[in-house]
């Protein structure tokens, strides 16, 4: 195992960039997904499902808060990371930024499922992270994510059972699957890191992703996680009689999955590289609205800093 990256002051440039890149993709995914989930509050199909999804939204927000807080060690505050950040600097997957069409509960539960499986694999690969704060926080987060996955599967199975539910799930799957691949896309380095220019979208730097694994921050590559993700979601969705746009099987009918994502399989906007859909910029304007309107320069903490 690589040496512990505990002391932020002792990190060299390469280590800092790797740490920031990893944490931003973790935190941004959770933050933006939570932002979308809250759209269902007071709009879900029943009071019970309203409460359940609100719960998941708060869990994801709490996780985002935990990851952003680790970035405090490298001098980044909430205002730098959320409220005063350039929207093009966010590194979340475009899967989480897409808006929900009113009433499209199939999208909500399928998106949760695709995301939560990936999240579970990603957290598993962080359990032994060389950054102690990351390793410490994974445990709490995993225990909550487990319930999210159950919740999503429970709903998927119920919707897949009926005619309209199955049709809507299939529509959502056709639309969301390409975006789900972006969960495993490499990130462009954060602004100001290495030789990255201010041009947008910035070039993806595969070295950063290698560094994340080489430094032991995370012990699986994006490709390995992508392959495992396919081997879970493909058979499961097929078992619900859904048709996968791409299945990733190595040979016809084989149980081996290869994660070969071609340009054609990916959507135009991938998030990780700084390209985003128009909906993201609208969302960003909405969640920074009050902060800008009141000309705030700092964010209010009402809870203690996480340990």
């Amino acid at each position: 195992m690589a040496a512990s990256l505990e002391n932020p002051d002792e990190l060299d440039e390469r280590e800092r960039t790797a740490l920031k890149t990893l944490l931003k993709r973790l935190a941004d995914d959770e933050f933006v997904l939570a932002e979308r989930y809250t759209e269902w509050q007071v709009r879900a199909p029943s009071l019970e499902s309203d409460l359940a999804l609100a719960n998941n939204a708060q869990d994801e927000l709490g996780h985002a808060r935990l990851w952003y807080d680790v970035l405090g060690d490298v001098g980044l505050e909430e205002r730098d990371l959320v409220y005063e950040r350039d929207p093009g600097d966010f590194r979340h997957s475009t899967l989480v930024e897409l808006p929900f069409e009113e009433g499209d509960w199939a999208d909500a539960v399928l998106r949760s499922y695709l995301y939560d499986v990936a999240e579970d694999l990603r957290l598993e690969a962080l359990v032994d992270s060389t950054h102690p704060k990351i390793a410490d926080r994974v445990g709490k987060i995993r225990s909550e994510e487990e319930y999210h996955l159950e919740h999503a599967q429970n709903w998927l199975e119920r919707l897949a059972d009926g005619g309209e539910g199955r049709e809507r799930l299939q529509d959502a799957l056709d639309r969301l699957f390409p975006y789900a691949f972006t969960l495993f896309e490499p990130c462009a380095p954060p602004r100001g890191a290495n030789e990255a220019s201010g041009d947008e979208p910035r070039a993806v730097d595969p070295d950063v992703e290698d560094d994340i694994v080489d430094l032991g921050l995370r012990d699986a590559t994006l490709e390995e996680m992508g392959e495992e993700w396919l081997s879970i979601v493909v058979p499961y969705l097929e078992s619900l009689d859904l048709e996968l746009p791409v299945d990733g099987r190595a040979d016809d009918g084989a149980d081996e999955f290869e994660f070969e994502v071609t340009e054609a399989m990916l959507p135009e906007e991938r998030g990780r590289d700084g390209t985003h859909t128009d909906a993201w910029f609208d969302l960003y304007d909405e969640f920074t609205h009050t902060y800008r309107e009141l000309e705030r320069t700092e964010t209010t903490r009402i809870m203690d800093k996480p340990e």
């Binding site: 933050f31 809250t38 009071l47 309203d50 927000l61 409220y83 909405e286 902060y291 209010t300």
Partner: peptide, 25 residues
């Protein structure tokens, strides 16, 4: 919930709205 000017405020607002749905229930 969305317009709250900090993550902590956002969390508190989401929890409040959730509580109210729970009260309705």
């Amino acid at each position: 919930i969305r317009q709250a000017p900090s993550i902590d405020r956002k969390l508190a607002f989401s929890a409040k709205v959730q509580d109210e749905i729970g009260h309705g229930q």
